[in-house]
């Protein structure tokens, strides 16, 4: 049994607590124990960086230090949390002065950033720690006949320094979907477009235009559903889609939900039956 510290951010608590339940079930099936890093805070959502970058580094150095104190590597599902925290780690590792300054503040809480643990996103964790084989072996209900559009989201591929896969031609998501038995649709026109989640509260119109493009090309490519490892992209597809003037009604899924379903967990328990845009496929 592999143990890893799970960073929840804002996406796996409160209204979205069920998403953490899904995660736990999914990971149990592939022999991974998620240890919830309860004392962590919001990563700042790449917005605190607008206020002050050092504040973003400090918040996330603290988040990382909390996992280090437990002797655990850190697993992050949200693309944005992953990127923001990975950027902070890079800054702390590279800049000795910054590290000293922030560690001085963390002392009050008895914490220290040492740079000793690894930070994983779902995709590299599945690829490097779990392995596609173990995923394949855990499948009890192959997604036969499911045509799934692979959607990565931006913050796992860009910038280069924190990317978890080849940014130009990534493959981990397709490999995972193939292991689940799905037919992967990875060539559709707007597969690399931004999901628009982050502009919903800065320029809503931009979000709706992005959704229109992505969902339109997913439909055109003949996919039944979109799969993304990022809970924010998923929310943009499932929730913000309903804000469109004419929602195309393209269903989407958060990758661990699809995995849970393929691992034999019921549609209800996997979370797939709770979406605003109904997942009709069985």
């Amino acid at each position: 049994m592999v143990k890893v510290g799970f960073y929840q951010g804002c996406c796996f608590q409160g209204q979205d607590a069920h998403m953490f339940e899904t995660m736990k079930k999914t990971f149990k099936a592939i022999d991974v124990e998620l240890v919830l890093l309860e004392e962590t805070t919001c990563c700042g959502g790449n917005t605190i960086d607008e206020e002050n970058r050092k504040l973003s580094y400090a918040i996330n150095a603290r988040n990382i230090a909390l996992a280090e104190a437990k002797g655990l590597d850190m697993l992050i599902s949200c693309n944005t949390c992953y990127m923001v925290i990975a950027k902070a780690k890079r800054a702390m590792d590279k800049n000795k002065k910054l590290r000293e300054e922030i560690n001085n503040l963390l002392k009050e809480e008895g914490l220290e950033y040492r740079g000793t643990n690894r930070i994983y996103h779902l995709l590299d964790f599945f690829r490097d720690v779990v392995g596609y084989d173990r995923i394949r072996k855990a499948v009890k209900r192959p997604l036969k006949g499911w045509k799934v559009a692979a959607y990565y989201g931006c913050h796992v591929l860009y910038p280069r320094e924190t990317a978890v896969d080849n940014s130009d031609n990534p493959s981990s998501l397709q490999e995972i979907l193939k292991a689940l038995g799905a037919k992967v649709i990875d060539e559709y026109e707007n597969k690399d477009a931004c999901c628009g989640y982050h502009s919903f509260y800065t320029d809503k119109n931009m979000t709706l235009k992005k959704l229109d493009k992505i969902l339109g090309s997913v439909r055109e490519a003949g996919a039944d559903i979109i799969a993304t490892p990022c809970p924010l992209c998923f929310k943009s597809f499932d929730i913000y889609q309903t804000n469109m003037e004419n929602p195309p009604g393209v269903p989407s899924s958060f990758l661990p939900e699809l995995m849970a379903y393929a691992f034999g967990i019921s549609k209800e328990e996997s979370g797939l039956s709770h979406h605003l845009i109904k997942v009709e496929k069985d």
Partner: peptide, 30 residues
């Protein structure tokens, strides 16, 4: 369009000179 940037970070990725426009946009917003 300062507030229309979606913060996708593609500009950081493609810049051959290591400029970080998305981060400068954040600085300008602040």
């Amino acid at each position: 369009g300062l507030w229309s940037c979606v913060q996708c970070q593609k500009c950081l990725y493609v810049c051959p000179k290591g400029v970080k426009p998305a981060e400068d946009i954040q600085n300008l917003r602040g």
